[in-house]
Design a protein around this nucleic acid. Structure first.
Lengths: 349, 349
DNA sequence: CTTAGCACTCTCAGCAAGAGACTGCTAAAT
DNA sequence: ATTTAGCAGTCTCTTGCTGAGAGTGCTAAG
């Protein structure tokens, strides 16, 4: 589905671009005079007014009330991001700084993700989300059973993608670590390398209820992993986002917070954008794009990380419509590339 | 340190109690007349006014401006919670409902915790925090090494308390699951049942750099577990809290959010209250209690769960000063007792 | 010690007036 | 045909004022 986009003259594009940039900084309706003065345009404010009127008619600008300055509409932001916004690189010294932080957490992959969230939050002045997830057709690789305390046991399942699932079980009776290890190695012998279908055939008929029970857990894990769903989600910078003036209205703040907390929404969003589309790179979702009503006043900048054929997760930031898109895009791109790089490096050749 | 508390007449206590309750519901300054009318007091508004003046002088009430109604101060809330508030039980049908939810998640201990957060958030209309943590002197119990993908490996360490730690490592070379299992069982033979000190003596001199490296990880884990620190933290109901009118001022909202996000603060708070004190039960922290400046406009209701000698974690809710303390306390108490019960049950005899 | 009565204080909503900020339009200039 | 200066018109925002209402503190009587 390709949307028809109105054709704008060069000067109209210029006016729109300047207006968006200025508005993002000042959060105040921008007047024609201001634009001319601030950017030393070589045409007059009356001309700008005429162009603004056209831009308004095409739906890119709006006025809070008659004869106030203009404000970009959702469509205005979209046009700006897709056609007008230059693609800045993140300044070299900031790149260096971020790299440095990552190399310090060299040994723990989970740390990379939570660090990413923190870095994104910091550099975007907004809220950040980082997910783990799995899209590859899953095969069973390995299971470990660990006795923790009393009747509790921890089940850790590793899939061929490298993804790890775990779950605490409460058993019917207390079992020693040796007994659990025994069960685990039986399952490992039985199931290594199999996918869901193959696994189902091997299901033990009546081989002791516990073995069967744990087999069930494995099966469910594999089944569950066929759905695109983010596992653990790292969030950061909520406070940043809520200090944006647009969220001083409690209603909007609440709305946006619910998105931030709502895993289901997030999964839907990711599978329909970064993971659903075949164009790689950074995706910008502005005001819900007429698809997600709840996101009316929120924009997201998202990107996947990991290899194309088995993407491993997504990173992104979340902010008001009026956010610095160019800064955001370059930050998200840089971080997602960096994680991809670190991960592929750590996977050896 | 026992604080001297002003002595109040019975009638003053009554006025304070009614005022707090009424204010919590209405969020409006309470006038003398209103109190008399609403609760059919058998003395006049003038009398109430006199009592209010006394209460104000003692620091329990304040006026937003000359001749408006009265509002409780932090000290007022404290006196109310410690001396005046009755201890309601959670209504039976709600207890039943919550129990039901928990029994549905019977098999996964982690689910209990995230469910607790959700239940607390729902029933308190505030934000909820649930932590895992460890206080017992830790001994090593078991380790598992799992090959995930390429050079990445997952280290899972179980301590004698039943606590589980895990970490992803990036190895120098790709190792097979068999090789990793071999290393794990060597460490298990070597270290099972030992504490930090004993473990240090057994440290392998030069037995292959990988074995040594993983041994380091075990050591650090044990060391780390001597500090009181919450592990994973479950949060819920943020949106609830931010829809409270007192947080419509962005500054306060931000302040409180930072607490919600700040792990260090939370650890400090917990170790100095629920885990630091020898009185068991529910702790109410009102407006930071002159100790935590950031909590000026926030109250917390906290309780630990698990057995006394090896407490396993804390649950709590977080809201504005003007929160329903009696409801909150009974909810937190019920949930923490319920988790304790479920856990001790699942630990067998 | 309690209470009725009253003067006083302070907020809040409403209204009017003036200033300021921009726009839209028209007519002249390029 | 396009651009621009000029100007009337529109809308917001601030300020000051007024009257109503709510609630207190004080005083003097019960």
């Amino acid at each position: 589905m390709v949307k028809k986009m109105a054709v704008l003259s060069e000067r109209q594009k210029l006016v729109l671009a300047l207006l968006v940039r200025d508005y993002v900084e000042t959060i105040e309706p921008i007047s024609s005079g201001r634009l001319v003065k601030n950017y030393q345009l070589d045409f007059s404010s009356a001309t700008v007014r005429n162009e603004m009127a056209v831009l308004e008619e095409k739906g890119f600008l709006s006025q809070p009330y008659t004869s106030a300055g203009r404000v970009p509409t959702r469509a205005g932001y979209r046009y700006y991001v897709r056609r007008l916004m230059g693609e800045d690189q993140l300044p070299a010294h900031i790149q260096e700084m971020i790299r440095h932080q990552f190399y310090q957490a060299r040994h723990d992959v989970d740390d990379w993700l939570s660090l990413s969230a923190s870095v994104l939050a910091q550099h975007s002045m907004g809220a950040a989300i980082v997910t783990q997830l799995h899209t590859e057709k899953a095969r069973f690789k390995h299971i470990a059973l660990l006795s923790t305390r009393g009747r509790q046991a921890l089940v850790v399942i590793v899939l061929s993608s490298g993804e790890v699932h775990q779950q605490t079980l409460v058993l019917d009776e207390t079992l020693s670590q040796e007994q659990l290890s025994g069960i685990a190695s039986r399952i490992n012998q039985l199931a290594t390398g199999l996918d869901v279908k193959e696994l189902k055939e091997k299901e033990p008929e009546q081989a002791g209820s516990l073995l069967k029970e744990i087999f069930e857990v494995v099966l469910n894990t594999l089944k569950g992993s066929e759905v695109i769903s983010s596992g653990e989600v790292y969030r950061d910078g909520l406070a940043n986002m809520l200090s944006e003036p647009e969220f001083s209205e409690p209603e909007k703040a609440k709305q946006t917070l619910e998105i931030f907390e709502d895993q289901v929404m997030l999964d839907d969003l990711l599978s329909r954008t970064v993971f659903g589309s075949d164009t790689p790179g950074v995706h910008v979702i502005i005001g819900g794009e007429d698809t997600w009503d709840q996101l009316e006043d929120t924009s997201l900048i998202l990107a996947s990380y990991g290899k194309k054929d088995h993407a491993m997760g997504a990173v992104g930031i979340l902010g008001p419509l009026r956010m610095s898109y160019s800064r955001g895009v370059s930050t998200v791109r840089f971080v997602s590339d960096l994680i991809s790089e670190l991960i592929s490096e750590s996977m050896g050749s």
